[in-house]
């Protein structure tokens, strides 16, 4: 129970940041529906993220994760839906961070911007057929396009059934919509709901546990939770040990130098 309390406390601590992001969204005019005007530049005035900017020659700015910036998703709103969805798939709990804390949304964003997102190594000739094998990827849409379609349908379903954005719903309500997507009950254009959901689930797990070089598994915390040492040179000296070994984590950065 104390874990749960701690958890609640943590959630409260996260509130201001979440709130500020939503304020940003409102201030920027993106939510108002088309009245973007001068676009982002104009909206910077009310943007709480800009307050640390200084003009000093000395770099006194707090350290930033420059790589935590979108390179694939164009709409703020899509990214917020993505964040909310992956956090339900891999939530923060007493074991440690959830998908957001591990950087999974940025991991997915980067993956979709690369060859995997554009299906460079996949067979993409038509026609696409109705197939009975649910796990088969049968669409000519790239993974990037599948994500945009799926994410927007999650939000559209949320607006339709709850009259609220997906990321403003309670966790259990979000789960209901995710389950409907997983079960194929939400119609998507050009691709089946389960294809999108399986991809979302798989990439969330990948983002939690892939080497941090890809933007997820922040500080190797995914590995820590799994008691996995990550990238060690080898275990020749330990392979016969019967006792479970807690070994200091290493990343590819540590290994390649």
């Amino acid at each position: 129970m104390s874990d749960q309390k701690k958890q609640e406390k943590k959630n409260e601590d996260n509130q201001p940041e979440q709130e500020s992001r939503r304020r940003f969204l409102k201030n920027s005019g993106l939510v108002a529906g088309g009245i973007v005007g001068g676009g982002l530049l104009g909206s910077f005035i009310g943007n709480p993220f800009t307050k640390d900017i200084t003009t000093s020659n000395k770099d006194e700015r707090p350290k930033k994760e420059f790589t935590e910036t979108r390179m694939f998703f164009t709409r703020f709103e899509d990214f917020f839906v993505l964040e909310a969805a992956v956090e339900r798939i891999y939530p923060e709990d007493g074991n440690g961070p959830g998908a957001i804390g591990l950087g999974v949304p940025y991991f997915i964003d980067k993956q979709l911007a690369g060859p995997y997102g554009s299906n460079k190594f996949d067979y993409m000739k038509g026609p696409v057929q109705e197939v009975k094998v649910a796990s088969s990827y049968q669409t000519l849409m790239s993974r990037g396009e599948v994500f945009i379609e799926g994410i927007r349908k999650l939000n559209a379903e949320s607006l339709r059934s709850q009259d609220a954005k997906f990321y403003d719903l309670e966790g259990e309500q979000q789960d209901e919509i995710l389950k409907a997507m997983e079960a194929g009950e939400i119609g998507l254009r050009g691709v089946k709901g389960p294809t999108f959901f399986n991809l979302l689930r798989q990439m969330t797990i990948e983002g939690a546990y892939a080497d941090p070089l890809y933007g997820g598994n922040k500080n190797m915390m995914g590995w820590k939770m799994k008691e996995h040492p990550g990238i060690r040179p080898g275990y020749s000296d330990l392979i016969e040990e019967e006792k479970f070994q807690i070994i200091e984590r290493m990343s590819l950065k540590d290994y390649q130098g």
Binding site: R201, E206, H228, G230
Partner: peptide, 25 residues
């Protein structure tokens, strides 16, 4: 076992969410 590929859970465990995370760890 690779941490991405290895998420063992007993049958009947949900494929995602709180319980999945707890049991796969």
């Amino acid at each position: 076992s690779g941490p991405i590929g290895s998420n063992p859970v007993p049958q009947g465990t949900p494929r995602w969410g709180k319980e999945f995370k707890e049991k796969s760890l």
